[in-house]
């Protein structure tokens, strides 16, 4: 069986290297086809961009961040946006601490679909169990924009989500989004590790108290 307990609050493993605790932090990327989920993951994990092929099933990335007081092991689950994989998606987001709900600002229907994705998430999680960030990707396509910044923000506010706009292509705000998640996570605060991610102030904090 799985050697690690998934779905636990946060798994603490001893690092032994700097004798700092290592927190495993599971993040899942959700959203319609071709909105840039894989590109966001790829930008964050490898800091580069390229046109990706549709994801098959799900891709798993690990990214270790060393902070002064702790290490964070990001486990990034990049799911496929294809409809045939939807029914198994909840497998992947079980135990996640944060979800990036991604839409494409140049395609209105992906924003509408994001609302459906949210409903799926709400089935599996209590409101304060998970940090959900609504991410409007592809700001580099601003000229073809179909979803305004305000629409995104307004919807996020009404549902108690965080909101951000990114571009995986031009590397706009990608790292910031990832770094905001542990900061916002309630249980993370409880664990009393002081985390001041740089530039995280650019992320609009909505009605999250």
């Amino acid at each position: 069986m799985a050697q690690r307990k998934m779905g636990k609050e946060m798994t603490v493993t001893s690092d032994g290297y700097h004798s700092k605790p290592t927190y495993v932090y599971k993040v899942v990327l959700l959203g319609s086809m071709a909105v840039g989920k894989s590109s966001l993951a790829f930008r964050y994990a490898k800091n580069s961009f390229r046109e990706t092929m549709p994801t098959v099933g799900c891709s798993f990335f690990k990214q270790m961040i060393h902070l002064e007081t702790a290490n964070i092991m990001f486990e990034i689950w990049d799911t496929a946006g294809q409809e045939k994989y939807h029914s198994i998606c909840h497998l992947y987001y079980r135990g996640a601490r944060a979800a990036l709900l991604v839409y494409d600002i140049s395609r209105k229907e992906t924003f509408n679909r994001a609302k459906l994705w949210l409903r799926e998430l709400e089935k599996d999680f209590l409101h304060d169990e998970i940090v959900i960030i609504l991410v409007g990707n592809k700001t580099d396509l601003a000229t073809e924009r179909e979803v305004t910044s305000e629409e995104g923000k307004e919807f996020a506010r009404s549902k108690g989500l965080l909101h951000a706009e990114t571009s995986a292509k031009s590397n706009h705000q990608v790292t910031d989004v990832f770094m905001t998640m542990p900061v916002q996570s309630q249980s993370w605060k409880k664990s009393r590790v002081d985390l001041r991610a740089p530039n995280s102030n650019q992320i609009k904090k909505c009605c999250k108290s």
Binding site: S38, A41, F42, A45, K46, T52, M53, P54, T55, V56, G57, C58, S59, F60, F61, I76, D78, A80, Y85, I88
Partner: peptide
């Protein structure tokens, strides 16, 4: 064929129903 049809497997680890 599945593996050769996509370059996306080159990144990370894929886990897929088949």
């Amino acid at each position: 064929n599945l593996i050769s049809s996509s370059s996306s497997f080159r990144e990370g680890e894929a886990w897929t129903p088949i």
